[in-house]
């Protein structure tokens, strides 16, 4: 039998938030269709480095393995991606895994993305329904608008756009492409649009949409192919109109 083909992983590890990063290398048996999460799972079963040292298994976050939960975002060969759908066959080897350092690192590849969820509070990312009880029918919606909403509503808060965006990070207060564009989602809804001025005003605050520098990395990095830059431009338009209203209506 031919010798088992191996895949080399170079993983940037870090024991805690304040520890210094270091790298370790692992070999994983190749098989067709292998992805990065599956490879990390293999390392869990036998956490031994290429030097034969038995180490603690690599820590990372994953849930669904179907590219819908957004948990397993990491930097793979320099780019932010979902690890579950990163097939080994499509990656240059050795494969370098790093945590997305735009966010605070907890351990190894595990990062703290709570800032994204906090930003969703800031932009009022919800429809102000009276309650979960029944109140007649819901309004009819333009199916084309609904389709745009559906596209934006695919955003899984994975943070790829945040990691790719040069204006997001510890050096900046920008809330990032994803939470910003979510504001547009709720402004599209027939009930959500009642609060559109609130959301637009929130985007005008420090760290809001004005911090976008138009590098347009977000739209390239988005694993869900959301047309982020288009909606950012639309929001810019809406925000400008809102600014005029703020000036002339009061």
């Amino acid at each position: 039998m031919a010798e088992q083909k191996k895949v080399r992983f170079v993983i940037e590890r870090q024991d805690g938030p304040d520890s210094a990063p270091y790298t370790q290398e692992f070999d994983v048996d190749y098989r067709p269709g292998l992805n990065v999460v599956a490879a990390l799972m293999e390392i869990q079963k036998n956490p031994v480095t290429v030097d034969g040292k038995k180490v603690a298994p690599v820590v990372w976050e994953c849930n669904c393995l179907e590219k819908v939960c957004g948990a397993c975002m990491m930097v793979i060969n320099g780019k932010a991606r979902q690890a579950c759908c990163s097939l080994i066959d499509n990656l240059e080897q050795p494969i370098r895994l790093q945590p997305a350092r735009t966010f605070p690192v907890i351990r190894d590849l595990l990062i703290d993305r709570s800032v994204m969820f906090e930003s969703l509070k800031r932009i009022q990312g919800w429809v102000e329904v009276d309650g979960s009880w029944d109140v007649k029918d819901a309004p009819i919606q333009n199916p084309y608008t609904a389709e745009t909403a559906y596209e934006i509503s695919h955003c899984m808060t994975c943070g790829c756009c945040m990691e790719a965006c040069p204006n997001v990070g510890p050096q900046s207060d920008f809330i990032g492409p994803s939470p910003t564009v979510q504001a547009y989602l709720f402004n599209l809804h027939p009930l959500g649009k009642f609060d559109a001025p609130k959301r637009l005003n929130a985007l005008m605050e420090k760290g809001g949409i004005t911090s976008c520098g138009n590098s347009q990395n977000c739209v390239q990095a988005c694993p869900k192919n959301i047309k982020l830059t288009t909606y950012l431009a639309q929001l810019n338009r809406d925000v400008n109109k809102q600014a005029l209203k703020n000036i002339f209506n009061h």
Binding site: K79, N167, G169, Q220
Partner: peptide, 23 residues
Amino acid sequence: ICLQAKNNPGRYGYVRNWQFALQ
């Protein structure tokens, strides 16, 4: 504004990102 950016065209070598960094 410049101080708010971590230029990364080395990792994300798209045209617009180069323009962003060059700006």
